[in-house]
Design a protein around this nucleic acid. Structure first.
Lengths: 219, 219
DNA sequence: GCCCGAGAAATTATAGATAATATTGAAATC
DNA sequence: GATTTCAATATTATCTATAATTTCTCGGGC
């Protein structure tokens, strides 16, 4: 029952740092100092360095030789790029997953949509939204594709959390319901088309809402 | 003029091991022992471990905690998955790159095609082929997308090298020429359609050639 | 007042060493 | 003869220490 035995220290550090970066607790550009992190986790700096390498590969951190590691910055262009990649890959995954979607999976996805619509904060909305996407795509049986989509989701979530620091307004997600309706009718291509537009909206220019604050459409 | 100063030891080890894995010099399933590799490169094992983490992220190696790192194995399903991902992402890249393609870039791509057609071995064919794809896609200006495509190319190349161990037959690439022709006419969507089919062919079931040996269409 | 440089402090990258774990092979048992 | 157990070996994951590089700071000169 040794929980630490299943997982390496480097992996744990990587997961925790990734969560901090995604939620914005660690701001873009922040220096990640290996000795400080090592001290915080009560380890040496070697596993910390290994965690850095994984974060780098996921695009959450940037390292320059001999100049340290920083939390990756991201521009609107980056967000748009990730949105387009997600759109292309999620459509691919949905096409392969559709034949294996069961009514019970679609019910779970609908429940996730309802949860997202009722979410009171951005964090629980993000969790429910990601669950919706994952439920529909997981049956594609393409592990590398799913892993790539997950990484892109993480970057999208960074943008989401950065935009909606504290305030969050409830708004029903019509795209999700449309996708589910099409999938129930086995009209895969229609569902894929809605999904593609839906995901591409992530990177759209933030617009003004009624109260004057900027907001971005997210998916 | 210190070349080693520009690059970290871990990076160098990673690049060299990646090349060995891709070319098949290191066979799938081979155990990668950190102490042996460290000794070969005349370093300690710490940079070796960091290199392992990058190889893992690229999908070229698989590591299980406390059980070491092995060269990743790959099945025909894996190859097909990578082919589909490449098709989706390369089409996306081409759509964005097309407006920025100049006649001189297209000329270089044509030269690469000629080189590939005349290649006497699989290795030089692969180099020319990859150059062709990269020339056409690089102007898209989406660095993360290009990096993802590069990683997928590496996995495709593993399959290529594994299939064509030594023998290699010259065969002109009609797809490449068709893509170039469409791009010269600014018919981006036609070019994208050919590219999509072209890349998807990678994972197609190996067929028999005249001499009776199995061969796979590759792109 | 501003810029430049030398020295100091902090930090990274690497090396060498240690403890814990998995693997292997041989002997003993069924 | 096959199987299980146990110890020897090999390997991994980690820690401590060291060398090298970068950044910071403070003082002097323009």
């Amino acid at each position: 029952m040794t929980a630490t035995n299943e997982d390496t220290i480097a992996n744990r550090i990587c997961r925790i740092l990734a969560a901090r970066i995604v939620t914005g607790e660690l701001e873009p550009g922040t220096k990640l100092r290996q000795d400080h992190i090592a001290e915080e986790f009560g380890t040496s700096h070697v596993p910390v360095r290994e965690a850095f390498r994984r974060l780098e590969a996921q695009g959450l951190a940037v390292s320059k030789p001999r100049r340290g590691v920083r939390v990756a910055t991201f521009s609107l262009d980056d967000v748009r790029e990730v949105a387009e990649m997600r759109a292309a890959l999620e459509v691919l995954a949905l096409r392969h997953a559709a034949p294996h979607l069961t009514p019970s999976i679609l019910d779970l996805a609908e429940a996730a949509t309802v949860e997202a619509d009722n979410a009171r904060d951005v964090r629980s909305w993000e969790e429910a939204n990601r669950r919706f996407h994952r439920l529909l795509l997981a049956p594609c049986g393409m592990p590398r594709l799913l892993a790539a989509i997950d990484d892109l989701h993480a970057v999208s979530a960074r943008f989401l959390f950065a935009t909606w620091r504290s305030d969050w307004e409830v708004r029903p997600d019509h795209d999700h319901r449309a996708i589910l309706a099409f999938l129930r009718q086995r009209r895969t291509e229609n569902a894929a088309a809605v999904l593609e537009r839906h995901v591409q909206r992530i990177g759209q220019k933030p617009a003004k809402n009624a109260s004057g604050g900027a907001f971005a459409i997210v998916g």
